[in-house]
Nucleic acid binder design. Structure first.
Length: 485
RNA sequence: GCGGAGUUAGUCUAGCUCGGUUAUGACGUCAGCUUCCCAAGCUGAAGGUCGCGUGUUCAAAUCCCGCACUCCGCACCA
């Protein structure tokens, strides 16, 4: 199974590994990126910046991870980002109170009701533990946000459960000072924190994780007025129908009504073009429109971008049309003005969000790039050259006869321009294979001929074929081959 | 959180049933030799709180108990 192979590669080659692993009290759901992981993550985010933030002239901010209580009162997370749970006094099993009650009595209680209502129904209907028939404890709320105490008085605040709240809260200032005009995208990359009950599968379900979020603010009356739509109208989207995945252009998707408007289609188009460039196999991807029950509490229309892996379909991006849910609740709570002028019209903008899970995306890049090349007895990470943690290995064929010194010279000249790895040790084939495993697209080898004519061989990772090139041309060749698209 | 299985070096693993010298092997890593191109060979070396903590015992990787983590299922996943 590829998940296990990727996991092994990650541990052996410094992509990612568990946090605090030397201590016995390390908690589940926390992982670290090692050197190769950081390198690929940085490049992935650079691609994201280029293909989304820069392309659409978005504004990027970097907000705090700890935010005050009011933010989450307004956002609804304190009330809604929690499940009502009830515990059996006998067998200690935990259940979701609302689901348990529906199953046992067919009484439907909205999940954000007062806790007494759950307890009352449980009492009235004499509901007991479905496992052991034991009696149930009082209903409690389990909020998935991490609470933190600020200062000596331990003032209540929270680690953000999604990065976007700072974008909403900062919106009035950003719009004014950055000379904003609708529609405008505001982007942010950073950590978010959720106290998951059962984190699992390394990077796929973390308690502390990276999000790259984009919130696009728009005039809700102009969702089909978008000149730049022509840029992506022929971009194809794979959209999950009731039964099957259909491939349509953005234009067709809007015309047929699969996507409600040009505005949403435009951003799904951008996202699709971005993921194409990450090297993830788009034939194993789909946009799935979420049903009423699956959607987040703030979403009006929601598409998940999902990718198929060896452990099933993974949700990489949540695309939610959040309407004015966030701005109006922050306006109400803070008493600040969030309306802006769009030409002559005063509007409270609506928001479409593209909320990307970075860790999961990176996993997919690794899994889809992982190749077990049995014929050549090697493992190859065939990822796009511009995402590779190491661009090029600089190798001496043998150490003696002055080749090591010559190799050092070549390395010295390119090490600040590319992520390069110098290696003199051991058999050449072994060194090539080590580079293959971390996805280095090129290996330059200095051999005896180099001393005569200043040429070297350059080996490409996927084909294993070699070309002989002049040392003075190396920089140009590598620039061209490792450049972002 | 529940149930099941597991945790021995960077990775994989033997040993555990039935407690007893210095914890086994492979791969990987490092140094040297060799080698003018794909995990070759030779020599040598480093690397372990046997997940953590208790208990039983003259003696615990091995037996008991507790905890943590990992994996699988259930539940959960704005």
């Amino acid at each position: 199974m590829n998940y296990d192979n990727v996991m092994k590669l990650a541990l052996e080659r410094g992509f990612y590994f568990p946090s605090c692993e030397v201590y016995g009290d390390s908690q589940a759901g926390f992982w670290e990126y090692g050197p190769n992981g950081v390198s690929i993550k940085n490049k992935f985010l650079e691609l994201w910046r280029q293909q989304l933030v820069r392309r659409d002239r978005m504004l990027e901010i970097d907000g705090s991870q700890i935010m005050s209580k009011s933010v989450f009162e307004a956002s609804g997370h304190l009330g809604n980002f929690a499940d009502p749970i009830v515990k059996c006094k006998e067998c200690k099993s935990t259940f979701r109170a609302d689901k348990l009650i529906v199953d046992a009595s067919e009484v439907e209680i909205p999940e954000n009701s007062d806790l007494n209502e759950f307890d009352n129904v449980i009492k009235e209907k004499a509901i007991s533990c479905p496992k052991c028939n034991g009696s149930l404890d009082n209903t409690k709320k389990f909020n998935m946000m991490f609470k933190v105490g600020i200062g000596p008085e331990e003032e209540e605040a929270y680690l953000r459960p999604e990065t976007c709240q700072s974008i909403f809260v900062d919106f009035p200032r950003l719009f004014k000072t950055m000379r904003g005009k609708l529609p405008i995208g505001i982007a942010q990359v950073g950590k978010s924190f959720r106290n998951e009950i059962a984190p699992r599968q390394s990077l796929l379900r973390l308690r502390e994780f990276y999000q790259a979020e984009i919130e696009v603010f728009c005039n809700p009356n102009k969702l089909d007025v978008l000149d730049k739509f022509s840029e992506i109208e022929n971009t194809t989207l794979r959209i999950q129908n009731e039964q099957e995945v259909v491939t349509v252009t953005c234009k067709q998707a809007v015309e047929s009504g699969i996507i409600p408007n040009k505005f949403v289609a435009y951003y799904l188009g951008l996202l699709s073009e971005f993921y194409e460039k990450t090297g993830i196999d788009m034939n194993k991807s789909r946009f799935r429109k979420l049903g009423e029950k699956e959607k987040a509490f703030y979403a009006e229309v929601a598409f998940d971008f999902e990718v198929e892996t060896t452990i099933g379909w993974l949700e990489l991006v949540a695309c939610n049309y959040r309407s004015d849910y966030d701005l109006s609740s922050h306006a109400k709570k803070s008493k600040e003005k969030f309306e802006v002028m769009d030409n002559d019209e005063k509007v409270l903008p609506h928001v479409f969000e593209i909320s990307m899970g970075i860790d999961r995306s990176l996993y997919c890049v690794l899994e889809h790039g992982y190749r077990d090349d049995k014929e050549n007895e090697r493992v190859v990470l065939s990822i796009r050259p511009y995402l590779a943690p190491v661009h090029v290995g600089i190798l001496s064929l043998v150490k003696k006869d002055g080749l090591a010194e010559k190799t050092n010279d070549v390395y010295l000249n390119i090490k600040t321009k590319f992520d390069s790895f110098l290696d003199h040790a051991g058999a050449i084939g072994r060194r090539y294979r080590r580079l293959d495993e971390i996805g280095a697209p090129f290996a330059i080898t200095i051999d005896h001929q180099t001393k005569d004519d200043d040429t070297v061989t350059i080996r490409s990772r996927d084909s294993m074929s070699q070309d002989r090139v002049k040392i003075k041309d190396l920089e140009e060749i590598l620039s061209k081959e490792t450049r972002f698209p």
